[in-house]
């Protein structure tokens, strides 16, 4: 069965009275609900993709070394400088830098509050090691290299848990994609049932149109135009409801202020993707209605 988009829209009174059908009364609201859910899922997908990119970047240079503060800062600085020199000679290490004290204070502030700035608390030294992803040394190797020179050194390979977290994020991303696909399928199924009900209701009229020489495509076009108009209306409502809901969600998540949760940032791309749902939903409704009618009419004489 070949598919052709309607080449023109006929705005005069349609030959089929589908606009007065009870069968289509709830279609816009069902479409609105589906599009609302799809908009939330798409926004979720974008946020997760953002988070995944951030995590992915983290994996590229994720080894952090904590060196306990000693009693003599000068001695500490010498030990740190020696450690950095050793690290830079290790295969797979792209670079190593000690984190400025101010940055360490900032990292600890959420947990220690203003006490993090107290000179009485011995803050550890933190060495940020950038490693090459393909040839990265294991945390154990770094630990074995440094432990003879620095007691109490702790090597934290972010990659281990970041990779697990990334896998979880990707899984949730896939779930979001599957949800969007399921919503599209459910939307199409709703249109199929509505269209079939409409066809059953107007069987007599459709027969008469056949008898006067109407092609199946002529009849299908009327259902398709109606379905696309209802789809457009419904998706407009759905997007109009999803916009404020997403802004509210962003605001609430922002207020939580947890450093571990990814920041929800609704970029222009997210809004464009959500706005695209309007024509897409209308097109899905139109194509589905047309295909349903063409398939059903093919069974008639």
């Amino acid at each position: 069965m070949k598919f052709r988009l309607p080449t023109r829209i006929d705005w005069r009174t349609p030959d089929l009275p589908i606009a007065q059908d009870d069968t289509t009364r709830f279609l816009p609201w069902l479409m609105a609900f589906m599009v609302f859910l799809a908009a939330l899922s798409i926004a979720g997908m974008f946020v997760l993709a953002d988070a995944a990119r951030t995590l992915d970047r983290g994996i590229e240079n994720t080894i952090t070394i904590q060196v306990p503060a000693g009693e003599n800062q000068r001695a500490d600085e010498e030990r740190i400088a020696g450690a950095i020199a050793m690290l830079k000679q290790m295969p797979g290490v792209a670079g190593a830098d000690v984190l400025p004290r101010e940055r360490v204070v900032q990292l600890l502030e959420p947990w220690l509050g203003s006490a993090a700035r107290s000179t009485e608390i011995p803050l550890p030294w933190v060495i940020d090691v950038q490693v090459e992803r393909a040839n990265a040394p294991k945390a154990e190797m770094i630990s074995a290299l440094l432990t003879p020179y620095i007691t109490g050194v702790q090597v934290d390979d972010h990659g281990v848990w970041l990779r697990s977290l990334l896998r979880a994020v990707h899984s949730v991303e896939w779930i979001a994609i599957i949800i969007v696909i399921l919503i599209a399928v459910a939307t199409a199924a709703t249109v199929v049932f509505t269209t079939r009900a409409g066809m059953a209701l107007h069987r007599d009229t459709i027969e008469v149109m056949h008898f006067v020489g109407a092609h199946d495509a002529y009849i299908a076009r009327q259902f398709a135009i109606r379905a696309s108009m209802l789809g457009f209306k419904g998706s407009l409502i759905g997007v109009a409801l999803a916009g404020p809901a997403l802004l509210l969600l962003t605001m609430l998540m922002g207020n939580l202020g947890f450093g571990l949760l990814p920041q929800i940032h609704l970029s222009v791309g997210v809004w464009l993707a959500i706005a695209t749902l309007i024509p897409v939903a209308a097109a899905v409704a139109m194509v589905t209605a047309r295909a349903t009618v063409m398939k059903s009419l093919a069974r008639m004489v």
Binding site: T13, Q20, D204, T205, F211, A214, H215, A298
Partner: peptide
């Protein structure tokens, strides 16, 4: 089947029960 409309256009039918479209 897609050529049947072409044949039907050559045929005019007056149905016993008229079969007019009530909304038109």
């Amino acid at each position: 089947r897609h050529e049947l409309p072409g044949l039907r256009r050559k045929i005019g039918v007056v149905f016993q029960e008229f079969r007019l479209l009530p909304h038109l």
